[in-house]
Amino acid sequence: MEAKKNKKEKNSIHEIAAALHLSPATISRVLNNHPHVHEATRSKVMAMIKKRGYKRNLIASSLRTNKTHTIGLIVPRISMYFHTEVITAIQNQLHAQGYNLVICQSNDQLEMEKDLTRMLYASRVDGVIASCTLFTTNFDHFDILVRNNIPVIFYDRVPMKPYPACIIKGDDVRGSYLAVSHLLELGAKRIAFINGPLSCNLYVDRYAGFEKAMMQYNVPIHKEAVFYHELNQENARRSLHKLFKKPPFPDALFAANDITALTALQFAKERGIAVPGKLRIVGYSNDPRTSITSPSVTTVNQFPGRTGRVIVRELLKLLKEPGQVKTDQLPVITPVELIRRMST
């Protein structure tokens, strides 16, 4: 019993401070990644912690500080390329700042998203990052976080009405405009558009960019060649069958995600439709598969790594000054870029 007690004492903050002739407060600042600590001191403390095998009591620490150093993240599907890259960037950035990340998947189900939000609140996370389901139009389930001064950041799929949270979104109007303008500059006259449901801000904005380009080039929009649905292979093939059932056929296709664009490429090969000779195709998101297909697919790069870093930057600001977000605060817009490849 005495041996166990001695071992515990040697591993305490006070024992480590005494061994290094530093104050316990300095040891605590190092453990909490406080910015105002000299690197030489930080290195010396971390070396001693490693030598002694010190393990911090996170539960006791959180009770003292009312902070868990844990952030919750809700995404529609972890398997989606864009979110995979964003998650990696967020986790790496947060880990460097001493935060843990709890990753949750809503499966694009609103009730699951609500349950996960309640769970993260009950788990006493310090902040929540969320990209919502395609069908989230009411964001009241996040109110419990806002009321308790837990910072909320929405990214990618975000509220379309004012909400007291930080909003980070890609420049989807511009991305879509660049994609469609590219097709029009190449001489396309009848552009089909397979879009996502308009319950989601992404697809409202991507339609706005499509419409802007078509109007600017004075090319008519054929309503029968514009589709709105969840963007998966099955739905894409249904829309493609309708587009090519009878003439006039489209000479270009803008797909609001890369899965749809890749499905269109496969469909064209099956039908003997030359790409880009008879059909030009543009996707959205720069999924790695678009660069290795034959032909490679023109797409819009959303810079997911940069998006993840911007999310963490804004979150750290809110963690230092909670409650500073206003309902009418402008969103943070991340850039996009058209990547021209052989499908156009």
Score class of each variant (00 low, 15 high):
L183M: 01
L183P: 07
L184W: 09
L184I: 09
E185M: 06
L186N: 13
L186P: 00
A188F: 10
K189N: 12
I194T: 06
G196F: 05
G196D: 01
P197D: 01
P197K: 09
P197T: 07
P197M: 05
L198Y: 11
S199G: 08
N201H: 13
Y203F: 15
V204H: 12
V204T: 12
V204S: 04
D205Y: 13
R206D: 02
R206E: 03
R206H: 01
Y207C: 07
G209I: 00
G209R: 03
F210W: 00
E211L: 13
E211N: 13
K212P: 04
A213L: 02
A213Q: 09
N218F: 00
N218C: 10
H222W: 07
A225Y: 14
Y228K: 08
H229D: 13
Q233T: 12
N235S: 09
A236H: 09
A236P: 03
R237Y: 15
R237T: 13
R238N: 13
R238E: 14
L240T: 10
L240Y: 07
L240F: 12
H241P: 01
H241R: 14
K242W: 08
K242F: 11
L243R: 09
L243S: 02
F244R: 06
K245P: 00
K245E: 15
K246C: 08
P247W: 04
P248I: 00
F249I: 05
F249R: 06
P250F: 05
D251I: 00
F254Y: 12
F254P: 03
F254K: 00
A255Y: 06
A255H: 05
A255F: 03
A256V: 07
A256W: 04
D258M: 02
D258W: 04
T260L: 04
T260K: 07
T260I: 10
L262H: 05
A264P: 10
A264Q: 04
L265N: 06
Q266G: 11
Q266M: 10
F267N: 02
F267Q: 03
K269I: 11
K269E: 12
E270F: 08
G272N: 11
G272H: 11
G272M: 14
G272I: 07
I273M: 07
L279P: 04
L279N: 01
I281Q: 01
I281D: 02
I281F: 01
V282D: 01
V282P: 04
G283Y: 08
Y284E: 03
N286A: 05
D287M: 10
D287G: 12
D287F: 10
R289W: 13
